[in-house]
Simulated assay, not measured.
Amino acid sequence: MSTLGLALSLLLPGAAFAQEGPQKLPAITLTAGMHQIRAEVARTDLQRQIGLMHRSAMPAGEGMLFIFEQPGVQCFWMRNTLIPLSAAFLDDEGRIVNIEDMKPQTEDSHCSKKPVRFVLEMNQGWFAKKGLSAGSRIGGEPFARPR
């Protein structure tokens, strides 16, 4: 959950808890080298706040891309999230800044090491299993370079 989401949940008690089941959002295809990722896209404050909460499982090769309007130090936590996740914090070109492994149902804060607009959550260990680390690039429409 982003810092903004945390602030909203404090200001609007119960806002994150009104969601009883997992949200399903439109998905796009991203690439990581030869690997394809089906990523649901969370664009609004509420979508980002709910994120992957209440899911008991997530298929391999699927995840959620969080898109923010402005770059910032993005921080996430795992309240009401039932599955272990890895969050890759991505710059505007899709390069991984840092990856944080997150434990289910915790409120530990996991933050980007510099301002970013994108965060990609996948099943925990997915990035490591694919040999991806800081400096690796995720491809796809959100990271298209202007010509």
Rank of each mutant, 00 (worst) to 15 (best):
M1N: 01
S2P: 06
S2C: 08
S2H: 05
T3E: 13
L4W: 03
L6N: 09
L6Q: 13
A7C: 03
L8H: 03
L8E: 06
L10I: 05
L10R: 13
L11D: 11
L11T: 09
L11N: 09
L12F: 15
L12R: 13
G14F: 05
A15G: 04
A16E: 10
A18K: 11
G21R: 14
P22S: 14
Q23M: 11
L25H: 11
L25V: 10
A27T: 12
A27E: 06
I28W: 08
T29Y: 05
T31D: 14
A32M: 13
G33E: 13
M34P: 13
H35Y: 12
A39H: 04
V41C: 05
V41A: 07
V41Y: 07
V41P: 04
A42K: 08
A42H: 08
T44S: 15
L46P: 02
R48C: 00
R48H: 04
R48E: 02
Q49S: 13
Q49P: 01
I50W: 02
G51V: 09
G51K: 02
H54A: 05
S56K: 14
A57E: 11
A57T: 09
M58D: 04
P59T: 03
G61I: 02
G61S: 11
G63Q: 02
G63S: 07
G63E: 02
G63P: 01
M64I: 14
L65R: 07
F66R: 03
I67H: 12
I67R: 14
E69G: 10
E69M: 08
E69R: 12
Q70L: 11
P71S: 15
V73T: 15
Q74A: 10
W77A: 02
W77K: 00
R79K: 15
R79G: 08
N80V: 01
L82A: 08
P84C: 09
L85H: 09
L85V: 12
A87L: 10
L90D: 01
L90K: 04
L90Q: 07
D91E: 14
D91M: 07
D91T: 02
D92V: 06
D92M: 08
G94E: 00
I96P: 00
I96V: 15
I96G: 00
V97I: 15
I99R: 01
E100S: 15
E100R: 14
M102N: 11
K103G: 07
P104D: 00
E107T: 11
E107Q: 11
S109Q: 14
H110M: 04
H110Y: 15
C111Y: 09
S112R: 02
K113D: 15
K113M: 15
K113W: 08
K113C: 05
K113E: 14
K114W: 06
F118W: 07
V119W: 00
L120G: 02
L120A: 10
L120S: 04
E121K: 01
E121F: 05
E121H: 06
M122L: 12
N123S: 12
Q124G: 12
G125K: 12
W126A: 11
W126F: 12
K129Y: 05
K130G: 04
L132A: 05
L132P: 03
L132E: 00
G135L: 10
S136K: 06
S136A: 15
I138H: 01
I138F: 11
G139D: 14
G139F: 11
G139H: 05
E141V: 12
E141T: 12
A144E: 14
P146N: 09
P146I: 03
P146W: 10
R147E: 14
